[in-house]
């Protein structure tokens, strides 16, 4: 599969690096370690250089995302509305830090600069849903909804088998 991704690009030409990495992330959702090694071999670059570029840009992920991605807005308006506390509450509740994924792979917690919904600050975005004027007390309730959904889905899947 990876070879097909490479076909578009001239080998040994380092200027293709970022474009290739973007393509890989589009397919896998992240940059798997063995694929990074293949990119290095294809472009005749040291593995350290490819890894360096992959960690420099925020758009690249080295670990797969969780099933649900939680983005806490840390833009100016949300900051004034103390979104820092929301983030801390989420970190406590999920037992992970921003940028990490829970061990059950259910949630990934990220921060974003500004979602553009300042009128309802502080804002938390989970997948396609937006939660405005979030309070710390609401957080367990919000997470519970996703956990229940997941359980129901598992039940349904195993039931069908």
């Amino acid at each position: 599969m990876v070879e097909q991704l490479f076909q578009k690009y001239e080998p040994s030409n380092r200027s293709n690096l970022i474009a290739i990495l973007q393509d890989i992330q589009n397919v896998f959702g992240y940059l798997p370690e063995n694929v990074i090694q293949q990119v290095a071999d294809y472009l005749k670059l040291p593995l350290s250089s490819v890894y360096g570029v992959a960690t420099f840009y925020n758009q690249f992920r080295l670990k797969p995302l969780g099933k649900n991605v939680i983005r806490v807005c840390r833009g100016t308006a949300c900051h004034v509305k103390e979104s820092e506390n929301i983030l801390s509450a989420l970190e406590l509740e999920l037992k992970i830090k921003a940028g990490e994924t829970t061990r059950d792979k259910l949630f990934t917690l990220e921060t974003v600069a500004c979602i553009g919904a300042c009128s309802i600050a502080p804002v938390v975005n989970i997948n396609d849903e937006y939660y405005g004027r979030v309070t710390i007390r609401e957080i367990p309730k919000i997470l519970k909804k996703f956990r229940l959904e997941n359980k129901a889905q598992i039940k349904q899947n195993t039931g069908e088998e």
Binding site: I36, L45, P46, L47, S48, Y51
Partner: peptide, 17 residues
Amino acid sequence: GAIDFTNRGFRTNVTTP
């Protein structure tokens, strides 16, 4: 090419892959 700059800003680190 064993080492290179990784990450950015305050977290920049010269290290191996």
